[in-house]
């Protein structure tokens, strides 16, 4: 059976003067309609690059060096520029991180919505405007009629992100890629936006890829997650299972470092060290210099994703026998 989106062995590189840097190193995942996938990781893990690769909108000098991205049965990276344009914003919509930067400051909201509709549908401006109004109502924008004639700077961050989501919905896409959609917003606004995204995904029958560094957000919204580290997926599977029983030492570290798992006043856990830069990714398992379970074999060979927990979960680690022990998680009672 074919999925809505299939990513197979994707390889993304950045062509630099002194040679190519590998940003995404052979990742694979898939997604269906109405399904919600979270991609989690630290800054520099390659989450956003993955998102942009799906619509082949990598900033130069990034390029897709290998692998396949198949969307609705079509190979994205083989499409012509025009065919790709017809998919972007039409079948696949993106939501960016910072709503203060996403909307063009010198064009009205109405212009920016109408042009999106008319880039993909043969409709009059009036019809496009009606559609824009309808979508603004869907994202609970008060007095949408007035908003259409306003400029982005006349609105708050949360309001702008709702408008960005409304723009993403305009053409009834099959897939929405949300790249850190709430990171730039106040915590109180975050929950509302997340709830809205989850709800829309169900009512509009869309697939959702939620890219974030925030495990708590992912666990609220998504059914499956993929944890990325240094351009690779190191653990993937059902969100509930992974949050309850993470098997990769990195995921264990991420969950342990959530403030929710700590008693008030006690020191927060952290994973020692830093994510390696792309120019110096360690041999073998990229995580071994920071790993509390590192063994000689971790330095020698890169581990493959291995099914665990009845194949509801996959982890890429040589020491899976060690990570099965439940006492590795600091506190199992108050996790998100």
């Amino acid at each position: 059976m074919t999925h809505l989106l299939e990513v197979e062995n994707l390889n993304v590189r950045f062509a630099l003067r002194f040679g190519d840097l590998t940003a995404i190193d052979g990742i694979s995942f898939h997604l269906d309609r109405k399904e919600k996938l979270g991609i989690v990781g630290e800054s520099g893990a390659g989450k956003s690059v993955t998102g942009f690769a799906i619509i082949n909108l990598l900033s130069k000098p990034g390029y897709i060096a290998g692998g396949r991205i198949r969307f609705e049965g079509r190979e994205i990276h083989r499409l012509s520029a025009e065919a790709l344009r017809q998919i972007r914003g039409n079948r696949i919509s993106m939501i960016f991180q910072d709503p203060m930067m996403t909307l063009n400051p010198v064009l009205t909201i109405g212009t920016q919505m109408v042009e999106t509709v008319r880039a993909h549908r043969r409709v009059s401006k009036a019809e496009a405007r009606t559609l824009a109004l309808e979508k603004l109502q869907k994202v609970y924008i008060p007095s949408p009629e007035k908003r259409l004639d306003q400029y982005p700077h006349e609105m708050s961050g949360g309001m702008r992100q709702r408008i960005v989501i409304a723009i993403a919905l305009l053409t009834d896409p099959a897939l929405i890629i949300a790249d850190e959609p709430t990171t730039a917003l106040d915590v109180t606004i975050q929950a509302g936006i997340m709830e809205l995204l989850g709800e829309l995904c169900a009512t509009e029958e869309m697939g959702l890829i939620l890219i974030t560094h925030d495990l708590a957000v992912v666990s609220q919204v998504t059914e499956r997650i993929a944890v990325m580290y240094a351009g690779q997926i190191i653990e993937t599977g059902s969100t509930a299972e992974i949050v309850a029983r993470p098997r990769h030492p990195y995921t264990i570290g991420l969950i342990n470092s959530l403030p929710g798992t700590r008693r008030a006043g006690s020191r927060l856990e952290q994973i020692p060290g830093m994510m390696p830069v792309l120019t110096a990714i360690p041999e073998g398992c990229a995580f071994h210099p920071r790993c509390f379970l590192a063994a000689p074999e971790c330095r020698a060979a890169r581990p493959d994703l291995t099914p665990v927990n009845g194949a509801r979960q996959w982890a890429a680690c040589h020491r899976l026998d060690q990570t099965a022990q439940p006492n590795l998680l600091k506190d199992s009672t108050s996790r998100p």
């Binding site: 619509i55 909108l57 900033s59 993106m94 909307l103 960005v164």
Partner: peptide
């Protein structure tokens, strides 16, 4: 970048 992502 968003304008490109909108397929304009």
């Amino acid at each position: 970048k968003f304008a490109w992502a909108k397929g304009l």
